[in-house]
Design a protein around this nucleic acid. Sequence first.
DNA 1: CTAATTGCTCTAGCCACTAGAGGTTCAAGG
DNA 2: CCTTGAACCTCTAGTGGCTAGAGCAATTAG
Lengths: 138, 138
Amino acid sequence: MFSIGALSRATGVKVPTIRYYEDIGLITPATRNAGNQRRYDQSGLERLGFIKHARDLGFGLEEIGELMGLNGDLGEDCHAADQIARAQLDRVRARIMRLQRLEAELERITHLCEGGAGGTCQVLTALGDHSRCLGDHD
Amino acid sequence: MFSIGALSRATGVKVPTIRYYEDIGLITPATRNAGNQRRYDQSGLERLGFIKHARDLGFGLEEIGELMGLNGDLGEDCHAADQIARAQLDRVRARIMRLQRLEAELERITHLCEGGAGGTCQVLTALGDHSRCLGDHD
DNA sequence: CTAATTGCTCTAGCCACTAGAGGTTCAAGG
DNA sequence: CCTTGAACCTCTAGTGGCTAGAGCAATTAG
């Protein structure tokens, strides 16, 4: 049996975050000892580890709740899990593409400072004026 | 003179967001007409356009406030603007790298479903277990 | 036995909005 | 001039995913 602090160290999830997950019903309320402190067993550790890993992979808490509701059998449940993971992959790819457009634009803008010849700052001008952009970020 | 709705259409910034920007002091309070409605002129339009573009480039509102406080002269101000832009570029690049690690991992996980042969869903197992990951996402 | 650490609950704050309630003003048509 | 409907006003509360702090109670190491 672990305390909440031990669980936190074991998973890398902060103590208030664990309590928060309990509050919103993502994990079932922990059993309490005589002094009203939360105690966790191995399965509690595994569940929180699952959540941590899924969070690191960018899944939202609601999706994580869905994933944890699946029982792990092959078939329907596996298909559902795969669909959630694929949706996340699509989102990640979309965000990467968007950020790459931003990167290109910011790179261009930050190069403007070097050969500044006019009377006003080209960096500020570029930031304020989308029509001077090369591509369509956003 | 534009109404808040006309300003919204012209810039692509939603009406409640414009009011929010005024509330937090990012834009100076608009002048009002006889009926207490906000009226904007050309310079209000330009300022909000600047904010919109900078937001699209991923700058935070606080940074945008700093950028707008710079007067656009060459020299110190231009250097300051350039530094803010470069910091943003660094952040964007860091986020891209992190997301690319996630992409690789999610790609691997979503491929597990196809040749599922064992008794439990490999997708769910992979989601729950970081030690099975190839790289260090996060 | 005491002191330090860890735990408890509760409230409030972060960012950048978004939604909704309930009321007022404006612009166009008759 | 009057009506109607859209656009405007203020205010409060909610979103996600936590984080911080106050003010206590329980545990644990020495």
